[in-house]
């Protein structure tokens, strides 16, 4: 997700063209990150030290890590940790962008600092972003006053979407809303049993045909428009998410899953205090709607 988030920032600020970004994504699929780049981005070596080791490598039959240890730039433990980061999404993206000559590593790192300022993220937040772990990234885009259970519900939704719909999906900043006018909605409410008054709901909306990016992939079908058939597919996807959430919380409370609801055409969606999270799937913007201690209504 970090490659999509930061990549789009680079396009927005003019550091990369859209075409360069797409090419970098293609390269990223094949890339194996060089240890030197990881060492520099992890701030264990300077760029100059990395370049020095690279030069030595060209005349010595030794691995980068071995030379860096010999020179006293890294310890064996650090080399081991850096090797573990070679599949990291941020680093593979950095490698893809620099290998293509679109930016130098210095420019890439400077741009990442600019990205931090633009989003007002802390250094810890940036480490979470660089981890590439959606469970660490998603909370950065949620308001501070989201309940833990609601956060867990959203994390499961994003994880499931990345797993079943689009592994390149990414998110925007979430916000609280009380009602939204849209065209086409699918959602499902879950209610506690007699021992609990829990009420939660999860839904998806999207302008134009954006919801088809979920419907088509989930149902393995090419729908022509957002109609009751395609919304049924979205609703079934939501049903799967909610099933996983109900399982997750089952040690604390039993949540009865009500039949999913979906409507085509213009509709006003209300939910008291609804969290709206933009999710970008296959180039389309969807909105994930989530309530906690309340239902979604239309």
């Amino acid at each position: 997700m970090i490659n999509q988030l930061f990549g789009n920032f680079l396009v927005k600020t003019g550091a990369l063209t859209r075409d360069q970004l797409e090419r970098a994504f293609e390269t990223q699929k094949k890339v194996r990150v060089k240890l030197g780049l990881i060492a520099v981005t992890e701030k264990l070596m300077t760029l100059e030290q990395s370049e020095e080791v690279n030069k030595l490598q060209s005349v010595m039959d030794k691995r980068f890590g071995d030379i860096a240890v010999e020179k006293g730039y890294l310890t064996d433990d650090q080399v081991g940790r850096l090797l573990g980061l070679q599949g990291n999404q941020y680093l593979t993206f950095a490698q893809a962008v620099t290998d293509n000559g679109f930016m130098t590593l210095k420019e890439f790192e400077n741009a990442f600092n600019e990205y931090q300022k633009a989003l007002a993220f802390t250094a810890t937040d940036m480490e979470s972003l660089k981890s590439g772990d959606s469970d660490r990234i998603v909370p950065l885009f949620l308001p501070d006053d989201v309940e833990e259970l609601q956060k867990e519900h959203i994390l499961i939704a994003v994880r499931t979407l990345l797993r079943l719909i689009d592994s390149d999906a990414y998110i925007g900043r979430a916000s609280w809303v009380s009602s939204i006018n849209t065209k086409g909605v699918a959602f499902q409410c879950l209610v506690g049993d007699q021992n609990s008054d829990s009420k939660v709901a999860l839904g998806f909306i999207g302008e134009d045909n954006a919801l088809l990016s979920v419907a088509d992939t989930f149902a393995k079908e090419e729908f022509e428009k957002v109609d009751l058939d395609s919304l049924d597919a979205v609703a079934e996807f939501i049903n799967c998410i909610n099933g996983m959430f109900a399982t997750k919380v089952s040690s604390k409370t039993f949540l009865d899953m009500l039949p999913p609801i979906y409507r085509e055409g213009s509709v006003t969606v209300t939910g008291g205090r609804m969290l709206k999270l933009p999710i970008y799937v296959d180039g389309n913007e969807l909105q994930l709607l989530s309530t906690y201690d309340g239902m979604i209504n239309i």
């Binding site: 049903n239 099933g243 996983m244 959430f245 109900a246 399982t247 089952s250 039993f254 899953m257």
Partner: peptide
């Protein structure tokens, strides 16, 4: 046939 999380049912 059911979604996960419906053990009671």
């Amino acid at each position: 046939v059911t979604a996960a999380g419906q053990q009671n049912k």
